[in-house]
Amino acid sequence: MWVSGRFLDGLLLDEVGLAPAEREAVRAAVIRAATDHARLAPLQLRVPIAVLSLGFCAWMAVAGRLGWNAERSAAGWERLGVPFRALTRLQRSLALLALADDRRLRSAFARRA
């Protein structure tokens, strides 16, 4: 599963305040948990997501080489009805859910109660 590295690293560093070594382990665990979770999606969602993910990665590679703004080119495709951004949204959502499950983050949040 493709999860934006910058997105996760930002959260891990800024929010959980992990040391670089620990960060790698948590990052891997979060991606694993989010991927496992995504596998629970029904087949009718997973098949188009898998196909589109491949297409998306390929497109982003091309767009990156051409120096185009990735988010804008994804938005363009979306206007044509191809839900690329929906994919990144789903992947980020799951990664964040898995990350928020992290003990440290939960106890930080529990202080609200």
Partner: peptide
């Protein structure tokens, strides 16, 4: 209102809503 649920709502449109996480 739990961190995971808030995060999922924000991550739907991280570009625009992500800053609220902080």
């Amino acid at each position: 209102l739990l961190p995971g649920y808030l995060g999922m709502m924000l991550a739907e449109d991280w570009q625009r809503r992500g800053w609220l996480w902080a």
